[in-house]
Computed example of a mutant assay.
Amino acid sequence: MRDKERILMTIITRIIPGLLYGSFDKKEEYVKSYMLNPSGICKGDLVFANTSLNINDFVVGIVDHIENDCIVIREIGSNRLCNYYNESFSVINKEKLGYEILEGVQYKIYQKVIKAFGNYTNYCTRFKSISFDGNMCTVQARKAFENDLFFEVSFPYNSKTTTASIGKLLKEKDL
């Protein structure tokens, strides 16, 4: 499955049930409309274009940047950009989606990290979180049945980073 398909399926399976079965007053925990206040939209937000009449590749996308007269949206899973003028957006809460919204190399690194935890750490050591900053990846671990930080490793990543190299770092910290 491509990034775009996976991310759209994640939105459908995690956001729609929250809207359908959650209470109306908690709706904004999942999706927040910025129809009357577009200044609340920020770079990096995952957005849905509410007033687009024609379905296109950018109806659900990521805010690349904001200009004086438009919001520039990046297509999920690509570097293609689209300028939106006179559009109303809703911001989708990425925290409700988890790591399934990572794209490209970052998603592949996430998958390798999960595999490395299974293959290179003790049974009681579990994945806690992953973050990316430039070309650096930081992974946090926790103990089973706890949520406190057990250890953290950081490493430079690229498309050639292997599960074994990640596993070696995890194993060194997992004492």
Rank of each mutant, 00 (worst) to 15 (best):
M1F: 13
R6S: 06
R6T: 10
I7C: 08
T10Y: 07
I11E: 02
I12Q: 14
I15S: 13
I16W: 10
I16Q: 13
P17W: 05
P17H: 04
Y21I: 09
K26N: 14
K27A: 12
N37G: 03
N37M: 11
G40T: 10
K43P: 00
K43C: 03
K43D: 06
L46M: 09
V47F: 07
F48A: 14
A49N: 04
N50I: 14
T51E: 08
I55V: 15
I55P: 01
D57W: 07
D57H: 05
V59M: 11
G61Y: 02
I62V: 09
V63D: 00
V63L: 02
C70H: 04
I71N: 01
S78M: 01
S78I: 07
N79V: 04
L81I: 06
L81F: 02
N83C: 08
Y84H: 03
E87M: 07
E87D: 00
S90I: 02
V91W: 00
G98T: 02
E100L: 05
I101R: 01
I101E: 02
I101A: 00
L102Y: 11
G104Y: 06
V105A: 10
K108F: 03
K108D: 14
Y110Q: 03
Q111S: 09
I114S: 09
F117V: 12
G118E: 11
N119L: 15
N119Y: 10
N122G: 11
Y123H: 11
R126W: 13
S129T: 12
I130L: 08
S131P: 02
G134D: 07
G134K: 08
T138I: 11
V139E: 01
Q140P: 00
Q140S: 06
A141C: 07
K143G: 02
A144I: 07
A144D: 13
F145E: 14
E152W: 05
S154V: 06
N158A: 04
N158I: 01
S159Q: 15
S159I: 13
K160D: 12
T161S: 15
T161E: 10
A164C: 01
S165D: 15
S165I: 10
G167C: 03
G167F: 04
K168N: 14
E172T: 13
